[in-house]
Simulated scan of single mutants.
Amino acid sequence: MLTRKQHELICFISDRLAETGVSPSFEEMKEALDLKSKSGVHRLISALEEREFIRRLPNRARALEVLRMPERGERKSVAKAAKPAAAVAATTPATRPAPANDVVEIPLHGRIAAGTPIEALEGSAMLPVPAALLGAGEHYALEVAGDSMVEAGILDGDYALIRRTETARDGEIVVALIDDAEATLKYFRKEGVMVRLDPANRDYTPQRYRSDQIRVQGRLAGLLRRY
């Protein structure tokens, strides 16, 4: 059995997900349940998690998933009047597309050269990224340094969003690790036993390496730019 406040909270979260596809904020939950502090919301959410009514989605801001609802006769919503069953079913987490403003945090691993190769720095910072910019797979971000990819629209200071992979096809933009020491962002080309890393700037020349000198660390999945 859930307490009255636990009932009210899970109903509020479920109604908000059905309406907007986005979990309510802790402040919104506090006001909806007329609580004095957010710590009360945290306690209620922890209790619902322990009883497996909801779960928190990892690496996402404001992301809660309703796993199951209380028994039909117990449901008491503090939000607007409940939608018809068909409308609610059409927007359950299993079938609802990811909302456009959903945010994912991915590792930010320092700077990557878009010019002469520089050391690829490892870091523990996280970068919030709109989920719509990422596809399937594991991703990380690198800050672009240099101008050798400007004709591909990749500018100094941009954040390159990289999908982890160790393979690439001709013409793809990749993070290439050279001699296990330096990394660069370039177009990938195979030339027999050689690998050519092509810039996207006519002022730079292609770089050629033996295949055993190059390890692909990922493919470009998207860009973030600050103005």
Score class of each variant (00 low, 15 high):
Met1Pro: 15
Ile13Ser: 11
Asp15Lys: 03
Glu19Ile: 13
Val22Arg: 11
Ser25Ile: 03
Ser25Gln: 03
Glu28Val: 01
Glu31Val: 06
Ser37Ala: 12
Arg43Val: 09
Ala47Asp: 15
Leu48Asp: 07
Arg51Asp: 11
Ile54Leu: 14
Arg56Thr: 11
Ala61Asp: 09
Arg62Ser: 14
Ala63Gly: 08
Val66Glu: 07
Gly73Trp: 02
Arg75Glu: 12
Ser77Ile: 08
Ala79Thr: 14
Ala79Leu: 10
Lys83Ser: 10
Ala86Ile: 02
Thr91Asn: 14
Pro97Ile: 06
Pro97Gly: 00
Ala98Cys: 08
Asn101Met: 03
Val104Cys: 00
Leu108Gly: 00
His109Gln: 10
Ala113Glu: 09
Gly115Asn: 08
Pro117Leu: 12
Ala120Pro: 09
Ala120Asp: 04
Glu122Lys: 01
Gly123Leu: 05
Ser124Lys: 10
Ala125Phe: 06
Met126Phe: 02
Leu127Gln: 04
Pro130Asn: 01
Leu134Cys: 01
Glu138His: 03
Tyr140Trp: 03
Tyr140Leu: 04
Tyr140Gly: 05
Ala141Met: 04
Asp147Ser: 10
Ala152Val: 00
Gly153Tyr: 12
Ile154Ser: 03
Leu155Asn: 08
Gly157Trp: 00
Thr165Trp: 07
Thr167His: 10
Arg169Gln: 14
Gly171Ile: 09
Gly171Leu: 13
Glu172Ala: 08
Glu172Trp: 01
Ile173Gly: 10
Ala176Phe: 03
Leu177Asn: 12
Glu182Pro: 00
Ala183Gly: 15
Phe188Leu: 08
Arg189Trp: 14
Arg196Ile: 14
Leu197Glu: 06
Pro206Tyr: 04
Pro206Leu: 10
Arg208Asn: 13
Arg215Thr: 09
Gly218Glu: 01
Leu224Phe: 02
Leu224Ser: 05
Arg225Leu: 05
Arg225Trp: 03
Arg225Val: 06
Tyr227Glu: 07
